[in-house]
Amino acid sequence: MKKTIHKLFWAWQFEEEEKWLNEMAAEGWVLTDVGYCRYEFEPCEKGEYQYKLEYLANRPGDKHSLKYINFIEETGAEYVGNCLKWAYFRKKVAEGEIFDIYSDRNSKIKYFERITGVIGGLAIANLIIGVVNVIIALFDGQFVNMMGILNIVLAAFLYGGYKKINNKCNTIVQEHTLFE
């Protein structure tokens, strides 16, 4: 028996997404395939799996990514699939054990910066496009440029996501000045 669930998580909600997948596993549903806002589950032993999402440094089909995924799998985790550059890993865990991909502050900071770099870049791109569109429209005598405004709203929305991860990252950076 399979079950498909459609659900939307934004890129900066990856921890919420992991939590939800862990809850599904706790109820006895293991993720078997993933797509855009689409999750496919099959029955499993309750609480058998823990999930970790990772925003890959390269495209999923790239040889660097394949090498990386292979390495992760050698350590006992399984690669479930990907959605864009987000890879989904699961691992069978013993009680009390926590499945993690990054274990020290240094590598966590680098990883978070990889994500904020992309979201921040998208936000800036949208802001520039939006402002340019609005200005060009003004010169054309058009006072409300919907397309431009939409870009600016999207930029603000992305900036919210950027802030969320950036704050998390800053907390770790702060601790990193005291501890490794």
């Binding site: 390495f71 926590i98 991909i101 990054y102 274990s103 590598s107 680098k110």
Partner: peptide, 12 residues
């Protein structure tokens, strides 16, 4: 005390 995670190890 130390559990090295796979991603951290890979980078190192």
């Amino acid at each position: 005390r130390i559990t090295l995670a796979a991603g951290t190890l890979y980078g190192a």
